[in-house]
Simulated scan of single mutants.
Amino acid sequence: MSTIAKALGLLDLFSDAQPALGLTDVQRLSGRDKATVHRHLVALEQAGFLEQDASTRAYRLGPALTRLAGMRVRTVPEVEMLRTVIGNLSREAGELVHVSRLQGFDLVHVHHAEEHEHPVRVSFDAYGLPPLFATASGKAYLAFSPGGVLDLALADPRTRLPGAPAPQRIEIEAELKQIATRGYARNRDGLRLGVSSVAIPVFDAAGRAFATCSIAYPTGRGGKATEAHLARLLMQRGEEISQAMGGSVPQHIVQLWTPAQERAAS
């Protein structure tokens, strides 16, 4: 690994839980010698990637990162950010992968990919997405949002299919709790007979759910084993998807999405 890569790699040590780190902290977390760490921190500070608090001497992320992040948002279309990761996920899953953003309580299409050769495919309308409570995507969003969001969604008739009654609070709360524990939402023949899906939330830079990513597949392709396989692929890509959209996945969600054997080995 080059000297530049090693220095920039120190930026990954900063997080919501650890927004400020001293020299000793960085040395301990990186496992490098003190002189090398100090040299890298000074170089990063001079470049504006870090700044040092004059009173505590601790380092935190610097203004250059804000400028570069803003430039990326302005100059790189969101679809372009997602194209590679969603295309790869679709090829790996062999199914339709779809990213949608929440505007109010409407699911709005952002990008989708269908990179497979199956003759039987899910019919997909990017401009006619169903309402929140009728989809795995909508429930994934609600399960990882603050409780007040559910109150607002239940009060808004646009969040359910036309003519459908409002979900029973006790039932929907129980379902959302299961989703939050499991890490993903699922929908089997719930919206259309013969179509199933799994979905996860996508998080913004503040770690708040603001979009979703789902995999839709013909129910006839398989049962619980297929669902578990596709959900696992989706959760494995969860951090990459949020990062592609400029976001950051909260650490407890990262842990939830990490297989038990990987957590045990870390």
Results as ranks from 00 to 15, higher is better:
residue 27 Q to Y: 03
residue 250 P to W: 12
residue 164 A to K: 14
residue 161 L to D: 06
residue 167 P to A: 06
residue 25 D to M: 07
residue 8 L to A: 09
residue 24 T to H: 09
residue 171 E to W: 01
residue 46 Q to L: 10
residue 130 P to F: 01
residue 192 R to T: 14
residue 238 G to C: 07
residue 112 H to N: 12
residue 136 A to Y: 03
residue 56 T to W: 07
residue 81 M to L: 05
residue 57 R to T: 13
residue 123 S to T: 15
residue 119 P to K: 11
residue 19 P to L: 06
residue 167 P to H: 05
residue 10 L to H: 10
residue 50 L to A: 06
residue 135 T to P: 04
residue 8 L to W: 08
residue 85 V to H: 05
residue 85 V to E: 05
residue 32 R to P: 02
residue 157 P to W: 10
residue 56 T to Q: 06
residue 65 L to D: 04
residue 262 E to L: 14
residue 14 F to R: 13
residue 194 G to A: 10
residue 42 V to P: 00
residue 223 G to M: 09
residue 125 D to W: 11
residue 51 E to Q: 13
residue 215 I to V: 09
residue 239 E to V: 13
residue 225 A to M: 08
residue 78 E to K: 14
residue 122 V to A: 00
residue 133 F to A: 03
residue 176 L to E: 03
residue 149 V to G: 01
residue 112 H to I: 10
residue 182 R to E: 10
residue 6 K to F: 01
residue 8 L to T: 14
residue 139 K to S: 01
residue 32 R to V: 04
residue 248 S to P: 00
residue 135 T to N: 08
residue 253 I to K: 07
residue 60 R to W: 03
residue 63 P to A: 14
residue 124 F to N: 08
residue 127 Y to N: 12
residue 224 K to H: 12
residue 48 G to F: 04
residue 84 T to P: 01
residue 240 E to M: 09
residue 71 M to Y: 08
residue 208 R to S: 07
residue 21 L to K: 07
residue 144 F to E: 05
residue 43 A to K: 10
residue 66 T to R: 13
residue 172 I to N: 06
residue 169 R to V: 15
residue 186 R to K: 04
residue 152 L to W: 02
residue 164 A to G: 04
residue 62 G to N: 12
residue 78 E to R: 15
residue 265 A to N: 08
residue 207 G to I: 14
residue 130 P to W: 02
residue 195 V to R: 12
residue 49 F to V: 13
residue 47 A to D: 09
residue 209 A to L: 00
